Simulated assay, not measured.
Amino acid sequence: MEPHHEVSAIRAATKDDATAMAELVNMAGEGLPVYLWRRMAKAGEDVWEIGRQRARREEGSFSYRNTIVREADGKVAAALIGYPLPDTPEAFDPADMPAMFVPLQELENLAPGTWYVNVLATYPEHRGKGFARELLQVADRLAAEAGTKGLSIIVSDANVRARKLYESCGYLETASRQMVKEDWENAGTNWVLLVKRL
């Protein structure tokens, strides 16, 4: 019997991946995306449909255009969302931004000119197969192609498993900021910025 080889299981996302993207971004964000979509929803509007609509956008950080997916058995098993950050951080007024985002924006601004890994998530049934590591290798390649000086990622200090993975791939903690949670429930205390130099 011939060994089975999957044909190019890593590909650019399309609008048809919006459902998986919404689910995976919520996993990576530990429920924060759904918390925010719920606040955006009008009466009777499906929270998940808001996530899918956002995934289908042509613009914005959470867009299928910034997404690479890893398939297994013909279905999306994992996803990476990322893009280069500007060389000069945009000035921002914390008063113009929801308080929850201020620490995240402050950390992002400490990694100008890096390729930002916004989302990396794998469905539970596919964890432990190395898909996240494969996608981080794709991120390394995209970061080099974009001419960035490195990569950056922000993770909750409570997400020990993800952090171990990033550190094993060469990411180092460079800063942290206290979380602002409002009514969002999360085990973490701080957001941690990890940077990998190319």
Rank of each mutant, 00 (worst) to 15 (best):
R163Y: 01
V117H: 05
L107A: 09
P98Y: 03
A111C: 08
G29E: 03
S8Q: 12
W115T: 06
A72M: 11
E23W: 06
T174V: 14
A72P: 05
V47N: 03
F131D: 12
G128H: 09
V192E: 04
E30T: 11
G44Q: 02
E49Q: 11
E106Q: 15
V192T: 07
A162E: 08
L107C: 04
E173S: 12
L104K: 03
H4T: 11
D16P: 00
A144F: 00
E182I: 07
P112D: 01
A158G: 09
R38I: 00
H4I: 15
K196T: 11
R38S: 14
G150L: 02
A91Q: 07
R163P: 04
W37I: 05
K196N: 11
E90H: 08
E59A: 13
A121E: 10
S63H: 06
M21F: 10
A78Y: 08
P33C: 07
A13F: 04
L24G: 04
Q178A: 11
L32M: 15
V119Q: 12
R197T: 15
Y35P: 06
L193P: 03
E6Q: 07
L136E: 12
A187G: 14
N190T: 10
L172V: 10
R65S: 02
G31K: 02
K164I: 09
G130M: 14
M21K: 05
M1T: 13
G74F: 01
M97S: 03
G130Y: 07
V76H: 03
T148H: 09
R56L: 08
S8C: 13
E6D: 14
Y166A: 05
N26G: 00
G113M: 12
T67E: 09
A146E: 01
T114Y: 06
E59F: 08
E125Q: 15
W184T: 03
A78I: 05
E2K: 14
E58T: 08
R133I: 10
G150I: 02
E58F: 10
A55P: 05
A99M: 01
R141A: 15
M1C: 15
E23P: 01
I153K: 04
L104R: 10
M97D: 02
P33H: 07
E2A: 15
T122L: 07
A12L: 13
S176R: 13
A12R: 13
R177C: 02
Y116I: 11
W37C: 03
A139D: 09
E182V: 07
S61K: 13
I153H: 04
E2G: 11
V180G: 03
V34D: 14
G128S: 05
S8W: 10
E45C: 00
V192L: 11
M40P: 02
M179K: 14
T88A: 15
L120R: 09
S8F: 13
V119L: 06
R39H: 07
G44K: 00
V102M: 01
V69Q: 02
V117P: 02
R56W: 00
V160F: 09
V34G: 01
A99P: 10
E173F: 08
R52Q: 14
V76E: 02
E58W: 03
N66D: 05
R11F: 07
A77E: 01
E106T: 14
A79S: 06
T189A: 15
V155W: 06
V25E: 13
I153S: 09
E59K: 15
K15C: 09
L198V: 02
